[in-house]
């Protein structure tokens, strides 16, 4: 007698509680068979969340889940999974039949949005229904250390400038030599006319006479330009 009451009682609890499975299918991003055994899923609604650990068949078993709307999360060390909304309800299979059954529906959900804002359906069914869990991304915990690489070294503008001037320094004489005499004469004529080659002073000297102190002191652009414009000439004269 006692056992039969117990049996009935257990049956009663069974009818109001659903069981379902969240399954991780094999996909190109993750091979679920290599996930660590600490991977687990939680169902949060009210009070302590319900936890289920990963089984050998790459799924999470939930049993005795009472009706309600749950936020399901899968916690894994190596991959992040999309959050799910799982609704468990007791509905009549056919209207008016009085035969009530659990119905489980699962959708994608978006954290930080309205709860009613559901995404794609991820599973639907009665007791023992299967819900699909989709991984989003592999978790990468580490920061790359910027090591020495020749390519990044070459990408540096200062290095590019230095290389360019190197090419000029070492390449120009060759160019000059290989020019035919007429072109060379023309070129030299051009150089005499150009401001760089002319008597206004050469850039090296200009750089030498650059007033670093006043520039550091933060003089305005116009002032420094003026001083830069004026100073070189007298100084070259003095030296000369």
């Amino acid at each position: 007698m006692r056992s039969s009451i117990f049996f009935l009682a257990s049956l009663a609890t069974l009818t109001s509680a659903a069981r379902f499975l969240i399954h991780i299918p094999s996909n190109p991003l993750v091979n679920p068979s290599i996930l660590p055994s600490s991977t687990h899923a939680t169902l949060q609604s009210h009070g302590p969340p319900i936890t289920a650990y990963l089984t050998r068949s790459n799924s999470f078993m939930f049993q005795n889940i009472s009706a309600g709307s749950y936020l399901a999360m899968i916690h894994c060390r190596d991959y992040s999974f999309e959050p799910l909304r799982i609704d468990v309800s007791v509905e009549e299979a056919l209207e008016g039949s009085g035969d009530k059954r659990e119905v489980i529906r699962a959708w994608q959900t978006f954290l930080g949005n309205e709860w009613d804002n559901k995404g794609e359906l991820r599973g639907e069914g009665g007791n023992g229904g299967v819900i699909e869990a989709r991984p989003i991304d592999a978790k990468y915990y580490y920061q790359e250390r910027q090591g020495f690489s020749p390519l990044s070294f070459l990408k540096n503008p200062m290095i590019l400038m230095a290389l360019f001037s190197m090419v000029l320094i070492f390449g120009m004489p060759y160019l000059m030599e290989n020019m035919d005499p007429e072109t060379r004469a023309e070129f030299e004529e051009m150089q005499k006319k150009s401001p760089l080659g002319g008597g206004t002073g050469n850039p090296a000297q200009q750089i030498q006479n650059f007033d670093l102190a006043s520039w550091m002191a933060g003089k305005t652009d116009t002032g420094s330009a003026r001083s830069r414009g004026q100073s070189p000439a007298p100084q070259t004269k003095k030296r000369g």
Partner: peptide
């Protein structure tokens, strides 16, 4: 539990 990796093989709850 799976002996080598700790995954669940089966689980049974007992009521009461």
């Amino acid at each position: 539990w799976s002996g080598s990796d700790g995954r669940i093989v089966w689980e049974t709850g007992i009521d009461g």
